[in-house]
Simulated assay, not measured.
Amino acid sequence: MTPAIPHGPDDLTPSWLGAALGGGATPVAVDRVVVTPIGTGQTGATYRLAVDYPAAGAHPRTLVAKLPAQDDTVRAGVTLGYLAEVEFYAGVAHRTRVPVPRCHHSAVNADGSEYVLLLDDLDPAQQGDQVAGCDEEIARRAVTALAGLHGPTWCDASWLELPVGSMPKPRDTDAAGGLGQVVEMIAPAILERFGPFLDDTDRETLRLALELMGPWLRTDTGRYALMHGDFRLDNLLFDVDRLFVVDWQTLGVGLPARDLAYFIGTCLDPELRADAEQRLVAAYHAELLRHGVRGYDLETCLADYRLGMLQGPLIIALGAAFAATTDRGDDLFRVMLRRSCRAIRELGTLDLVRAADATT
């Protein structure tokens, strides 16, 4: 029997866990579960489960459970993300080559207001630090892992029928226009909230980027793949020789280099980014070719990378508007905006968007 979806951490009981690990068949005998909150998620709640079994066996001694935010207001605003993350683990992950934790159980209700994921505990792997940023070697590991998502799904039309996604799909101009209007509505609040922490140049770049979000979202290069949508250091786990990508609530389909630009533009200090970005884009491009992508030269990849840089302001604006407010979250958004705005200027992204819009 399939177990009910737990509403909160008190529902992560031995009987629930045993049924979940049993996969709807014979439940696994579980003596005790100790539930401990981990992380500071702004759109959900994550817990580590320490498990005791009555007999030795192959079952994991620790697991990670993901549940919706316990704040009903936050939960209501991110249900599409919950639906997307369950869809990724249940029906998408095995069709990619991106490294992710094993999923032991997943469930979601029809409207996405209740969901659960039961994942491998990847301890001692450590979460990346978005505020601190990373060096070029870590960035290279990240962008080559990203190619394992994009390469196997490159321009496969079946992904245009993906039933979930938090971003408009290519050629869906109505959805792109709708999201552009959402950004237009929240832009004054975003500028009021973060403007005082930006210099005049960055503040003007942010204003123009938000203003051009609708045309940017409608831009169609003809290239698309599955996108993570929020591919950054806080959503990566590292140990000595492994990397895992987590937090798939922003799963979607779109220009692949948006993920690439978002990572490089928001995770690297501007001086390092300017020095290393061509090498990093080349490493990503080479890995795409290894995954079978053809007819996509490095020059086009670099142009897509420049165009994709508005992913930063988009995700930051939506995250700031709809996620729970935390001190670290605000620090994170400020640092990301400074890095992203400078990259947008130095790469001429706004001019690319205007030129693309003029030809449509």
Rank of each mutant, 00 (worst) to 15 (best):
L63K: 15
R342C: 04
T43L: 02
D200R: 12
L119W: 10
R339T: 02
A324N: 05
H228Y: 04
T36I: 01
A176I: 00
G252R: 04
G214Y: 00
F263A: 08
Y53H: 12
G180S: 13
F197R: 12
C103E: 12
V30A: 14
G265Y: 05
A25N: 12
D304A: 02
R290M: 11
I138E: 14
T201G: 12
A19R: 14
G91T: 08
R171S: 13
M309G: 07
R345P: 04
C155F: 00
A20Y: 03
E277A: 08
P313Q: 05
P196T: 05
V164Q: 10
D259I: 00
A142F: 02
Y284A: 14
L352H: 15
I38W: 09
L179I: 00
L332S: 13
L289T: 10
G229Y: 06
M1N: 06
L146P: 14
C267M: 05
F88E: 09
L49N: 12
D220K: 01
T96L: 00
P163H: 14
M1K: 08
D174S: 14
P6I: 01
I5W: 02
R334E: 05
D351A: 09
A175H: 08
H94P: 09
R290L: 09
A320H: 11
R306E: 11
L160C: 10
G348P: 08
Y284R: 13
E161N: 14
P37C: 14
A303N: 08
H104V: 07
V30Q: 06
E87P: 06
T46L: 03
D135S: 13
V143C: 14
Q249E: 15
P270N: 10
A286K: 11
W154R: 05
L217Y: 03
T349P: 11
R193P: 01
T153C: 10
V108S: 12
D200N: 12
C103F: 06
L314P: 14
D120V: 05
A283T: 01
Y115C: 07
F88R: 01
